[in-house]
């Protein structure tokens, strides 16, 4: 379908955004890359009165390192994320996730801020930022506040964003030599939303023991699911087949997947177990030695 009628305004600064939002109220929707919003408008399921284009706001751009924190501006496009040397070095999980996101033409427009704000439960980046224990920087007329990624995703397509806020940036703790991360997923076709996926992050000590494991599943719930039980099952353990099996077993209480067009909840549970082993196996001593 054709898009419903709406107005278009371009914001050059955050002040413009606050002003336009004040003028138009709930009818105003922010648009950055537009790869989700504009696609859904073609269904005519929502009819915003005005789209506020934030793509030229300089404050939302750029990838920088400050101390041990990688700051990624909300307008960073997926393609930029995939080729940025700072991202590759300090948050390799994000770089690894990019090829899974749709297709090249989409990645040239879609932004990390947009992906996080839309919070699709099957999307890769929300799960990755939770796995990396990232912090979202939310801006509003009152200033900035920081929200842990794990607290940002509150429900199906719902986030902690207040009506007057937007995502300004994502702050990721920079990877250390002990950091390990992986993203794995099962999708019917390349670029599809995953039937089930897992973004995993942990630290491997010199003694081979796991610390700070964060197994975050996507496509299996209302949003990215940080699997507390499965993660806890790994904490302090030497990573081996037994530890992986323990994590798989604990997973049963962590996730409660819905059924969808691809299959029943049990299929997603099964796939999540399979992905757990596939992701963690990469950090087994033998696998690391081989790579």
């Amino acid at each position: 379908m054709k898009w419903p009628a709406f107005a278009y305004e371009r914001a050059s600064t955050l002040q413009d955004v606050w002003r336009l939002r004040a003028e138009h109220g709930e009818g105003a929707r922010l648009v950055a890359g537009g790869q989700t919003l504009l696609a859904t408008l073609a269904f005519r399921l929502s009819e915003p009165s005005v789209l506020v284009d934030i793509t030229r706001i300089e404050a939302l751009r750029g990838v920088t390192v400050q101390g041990s924190t990688l700051r990624i501006g909300a307008l960073t496009r997926h393609a930029e994320l995939g080729r940025d040397p700072l991202v590759a070095r300090h948050a390799p999980l994000l770089a690894e996730a990019v090829p899974y996101i749709a297709h090249p033409a989409i990645r040239n427009r879609g932004t990390i801020g947009g992906s996080l704000a839309y919070a699709d439960p099957a999307a890769e980046l929300p799960a990755c930022v939770v796995a990396l224990d990232a912090t979202l920087v939310l801006a509003s007329p009152a200033g900035e506040r920081r929200v842990a990624a794990r607290e940002f995703f509150t429900g199906l397509l719902e986030t902690a964003l207040k009506p007057d806020e937007l995502i300004a940036a994502v702050e990721v703790p920079a990877a250390t030599p002990a950091s390990r991360s992986a993203i794995v997923e099962v999708a019917r076709r390349s670029g599809d939303y995953a039937m089930a996926g897992l973004a995993a992050s942990l630290s491997l000590g010199a003694d081979g023991r796991v610390s700070a494991p964060r197994l975050v599943y996507f496509g299996v719930g209302n949003g990215p699911v940080l699997a507390a039980g499965a993660s806890a099952a790994l904490e302090g353990k030497a990573l081996d087949a037994g530890a992986i099996a323990a994590a798989q077993a604990a997973l049963a209480r962590d996730i409660d997947p819905p059924s969808d067009l691809h299959g029943p909840p049990e299929m997603k549970r099964h796939l999540a177990r399979v992905l757990t082993a596939r992701a963690l196996s990469r950090f087994l001593p033998a696998a690391e030695a081989a790579s």
């Binding site: 039937m195 691809h262 299959g263 029943p264 049990e266 299929m267 549970r269 099964h270």
Partner: peptide, 13 residues
Amino acid sequence: FTPARILAALGRI
């Protein structure tokens, strides 16, 4: 022949 049907045939789900 979806993953769900193949997994069901295999008795995995």
